[in-house]
């Protein structure tokens, strides 16, 4: 029953996204598309993070590294003369899988706060690696010569096509994540979150499951990186700064962890807040920060928690 409610939220969000081109047209504001595309990309990243954070209780403070890996896959392949988005996605995912297997295997030896910090350490390593990689622009990053091509056509040069591609990817990946979470694999992952000893006792070794989840999560986040690189036509290590990792966590927690649709809602909400607050005052971060503190103090569980409590109240009144 609850799952259906979450699907409803996701459906509403997707429908809302689908209405953006129309809205942009009505308001004569083509920039809405650009904002929406960024939201979609971050929604994908946040959803990827939710897979380990929400379902595995593994707080990765280094997921920005995967954004960077995806984005740099685009840069590097373009330098080699490969422009196809399909190949960019494949390369990004492959690189993310390699990085996630290596770092995940080490990180998962630790628990709790130590896990948070070691994932941060690995992403900082990746960050500093690209910062000093001067052939790719180093700290400054580099503009892409063009956007990726789709089946040999430069359709994505049009913001609208890029938007539809991002929305398609988000919906597709949402379905994939939903299938993973609902599968036996997903249930073992949740079990390991709730009680690792008991899972071990009934014959499951959590390590393998957690590592697999971590790798899938990294791969999904790298897809967001490919999209972000295309949206901005610019790739720099700033994409993998630890602040970004923090923002991804904020998005997931804001929307409510362990619900997938919550992560999407959180990404939309965070970017929407940023856009609107920045329109009012140059000190928008102050208000954004106050909002975060307020959410934690007065509305634990994020937006979905709030909705759930309101529902409960209405329900009890009946």
């Amino acid at each position: 029953m609850r799952l259906m409610g979450r699907d409803l939220v996701a459906l509403l969000l997707f429908a809302g996204f689908a209405a953006v081109p129309l809205l942009a047209n009505l308001l004569q504001d083509p920039f809405l598309l650009v904002i929406a595309t960024r939201m979609l990309a971050f929604a994908i990243a946040a959803m990827g993070l939710d897979l380990v954070l929400g379902y595995g209780a593994l707080v990765s403070f280094g997921h920005a590294a995967y954004l960077g890996i995806g984005a740099y896959a685009v840069t590097i392949l373009m330098r080699l003369g490969v422009y196809d988005i399909g190949l960019h996605l494949l390369a990004g995912i492959a690189a993310a899988v390699v990085f996630a297997v290596g770092t995940g295997a080490v990180s998962l030896r630790t628990r709790g706060v130590y896990f948070i910090m070691i994932t941060l350490a690995f992403s900082q390593m990746a960050y500093f690696f690209f910062v000093s990689f001067s052939a790719l622009g180093g700290d400054d990053g580099a503009s892409l010569p063009q956007r990726s091509t789709l089946f040999g056509h430069d359709l994505l040069e049009n913001d609208l096509w890029l938007f539809w591609l991002a929305l398609g990817l988000l919906i597709g990946l949402f379905l994939v994540c939903r299938a993973i979470v609902g599968s036996r694999f997903g249930r073992v992952l949740c079990g390991a979150r709730e009680n690792p000893q008991r899972m071990q006792a009934i014959g499951f070794v959590p390590f393998g499951y957690q590592l697999t989840a971590y790798v899938i999560s990294g791969a999904i986040t790298s897809i967001a990186g490919v999209l972000l690189a295309n949206q901005a036509e610019f790739v720099s290590p700033a994409l993998m700064n630890w602040h970004r990792s923090g923002e991804l966590i904020v998005m997931v927690v804001l929307g409510g962890i362990g619900t997938l649709s919550g992560a999407i809602a959180g990404a939309v909400l965070a970017l929407l807040l940023e856009e609107t607050l920045a329109g009012f005052t140059q000190y928008w971060k102050l208000w954004f920060g106050l909002f975060l503190v307020g959410i934690v103090l007065f509305a634990p569980g994020g937006v979905q928690g709030l909705v759930a409590r309101i529902k409960l109240q209405i329900g009890s009144r009946r």
């Binding site: 954070l53 707080v59 403070f61 709790g112 706060v113 948070i116 923090g246 966590i249 904020v250 927690v253 804001l254 962890i257 971060k285 102050l286 954004f288 920060g289 106050l290 909002f291 975060l292 503190v293 959410i295 934690v296 103090l297 634990p300």
Partner: peptide
């Protein structure tokens, strides 16, 4: 609260 809530709130406090 959970570690996650603490991360979120103190991250917000950093911004503030």
């Amino acid at each position: 609260r959970s570690h996650l809530d603490q991360v979120l709130a103190t991250f917000g406090l950093v911004l503030v």
